[in-house]
């Protein structure tokens, strides 16, 4: 099985997000990026599958800031091959644009299974997995929490609400949006990533076709804060006193 795992960087939400001068995008100058957490799960599930059943895992990403580090980390975790799709992918790239560029590249590499993160915090115009599947002419299942091999092909688990899981079997090719890997994604120390990066070539594929979102961002704004919470401050003792008063007044404690 050739498993391809697209990975991408997203803004780290621990940092405060600022809107730029255009009013339509984040101020990306000081933005701290991290790999989309669901991509870590997709890579983990792909590696678990490979370790159990053989095959190869290829991590692929569109060229963007810091993406080499993310690809080296994927290699350090066990990806056999890392690929960068070159083209103009600075700033905010729409899901439709990313999916078309990735689909062309994945098509040229060849694949049996594509595992992407189920979603990302910035995929305004849709989750990548379904768009990729559309371009690749493959079936698509999302919110996947387990991928196993059996005599009939793949057995996959998809999560619904309330913890109910649907089991499907599928043949390949297939594109899966991974919600959570069976195991907590493995961690690799920086030293190991540095080591993996030595002598490792990132294959490059130039983006060919293009597609756009078909919609345009007209405005970005912070949520207005609905009714909003009454804030009790940052002092734990004082806040605890107030919380106890509230609980007592409501008859909870």
């Amino acid at each position: 099985m050739n498993i391809v795992v697209p990975i991408k960087q997203v803004p780290d939400l621990v940092e405060e997000l600022e809107i730029d001068g255009s009013g339509k995008d984040l101020n990306r100058e000081w933005l701290k990026n991290k790999v989309n957490e669901f991509d870590d799960h997709a890579l983990e599930e792909a590696l678990l599958y490979k370790e159990a059943n053989g095959g190869t895992v290829t991590a692929i990403a569109l060229d963007s800031d810091d993406i080499e580090k993310a690809l080296f980390a994927a290699a350090a975790k066990g990806a056999d091959k890392v690929v960068k799709v070159t083209g103009d992918f600075g700033g905010a790239v729409s899901s439709h644009t990313a999916a078309k560029a990735l689909a062309d590249a994945i098509q040229s590499i060849g694949f049996d299974i594509v595992m992407t993160g189920v979603q990302a915090v910035d995929d305004r115009d849709g989750q990548i997995a379904g768009l990729l599947a559309g371009h690749l002419g493959a079936a698509n299942v999302n919110v996947v929490t387990s991928v196993e091999k059996d005599a009939d092909g793949l057995v996959i688990h998809k999560e619904y609400s309330g913890g109910v899981v649907a089991e499907f079997e599928t043949s390949t090719p297939v594109v899966l949006g991974i919600q959570a890997a069976k195991e907590t994604p493995r961690y690799v120390p920086v030293a190991k990533i540095r080591k993996a990066s030595r002598g490792l070539t990132i294959d490059e594929i130039a983006a060919s076709g293009s597609a756009d979102a078909g919609s345009e961002v007209s405005r970005m704004f912070k949520p207005e804060g609905g009714a909003g919470a009454e804030m009790l401050g940052d002092d734990a003792e004082a806040a605890a006193t107030k919380i106890m008063e509230i609980l007592t007044s409501k008859g909870i404690k």
Binding site: S95, V118, Q127, G130, A133, G134, H135, N140, G214, S215
Partner: peptide
């Protein structure tokens, strides 16, 4: 999530999510 994005590609209609 299993329907919207695929439909966007097959029918060539823009998709806005969330």
């Amino acid at each position: 999530m299993d329907i919207a994005a695929g439909l966007s590609v097959s029918q060539n209609m823009p998709l806005v999510a969330y």
